[in-house]
């Protein structure tokens, strides 16, 4: 069986996998990082999004072996070590951008990458288009869009905190 060595949330792991093992299976089943979810089998929903070397990727459509040597960040690794939430997490809470929470890890990871890649700032419509790869059945997206808009101001240093953005 192939061996994969990868860094997940700052910790290095060497794991034996089948050739067909998906990255999401490695994360959930071998490393027991169950924050990353599986919501579909056709790469439509984005519940499985993680960052590989700083890029958002659908871990259900990535073979574990493809992540060999990579640095992976999952939702469990987004907050600061002391538990301080990332501005995107904070914004999702402040704007009630989650209900059942199942799409949330993927949604947050996608949103963080979307904002990081667009330092010029995104309009509401651009945020909606940027979420094309993520499905949420609960919220109707409106509050997710608002949360991302608020988080980008904090992530780009235009405001100091989500609470300030919420004023």
């Amino acid at each position: 069986m192939p061996q994969v060595t990868l860094t997940v949330n700052g910790k290095t792991h060497t794991v034996e996998v089948e050739g067909r093992t998906l990255l999401v299976e490695l994360l959930r089943e071998k490393l027991r990082l169950t924050g990353t979810h599986v919501g579909c089998d056709t790469s439509q929903c984005g519940a499985c999004v993680v960052h590989i070397d700083g890029n958002s990727v659908k871990s259900c459509t990535t073979l574990a072996v493809m992540a060999d040597g990579a640095s992976v960040t999952t939702i469990e690794g987004l907050a600061a070590a002391d538990g301080t939430l990332h501005p995107m997490q904070e914004a999702f809470r402040e704007y009630h951008a989650l209900q059942c929470g199942f799409c949330t890890p993927g949604m947050v990871m996608s949103a963080v990458d979307l904002v990081a890649k667009n330092p010029q700032g995104l309009s509401e419509q651009e945020i909606r288009e940027g979420l094309e790869g993520n499905l949420c059945r609960c919220t109707g997206y409106h509050n997710i869009v608002k949360a991302i808009a608020a988080a980008q101001d904090v992530m780009h240093g235009k405001r100091t905190s989500i609470a300030a953005a919420a004023e």
Partner: peptide, 21 residues
């Protein structure tokens, strides 16, 4: 009131059935 359950869900610490082994 902001939701009590959110921090758990936002940090990947929800316990859904498939998370149980």
């Amino acid at each position: 009131v902001r939701r009590k359950e959110d921090v758990r869900f936002l940090s990947g610490r929800g316990q859904y059935t498939d998370d149980i082994n």
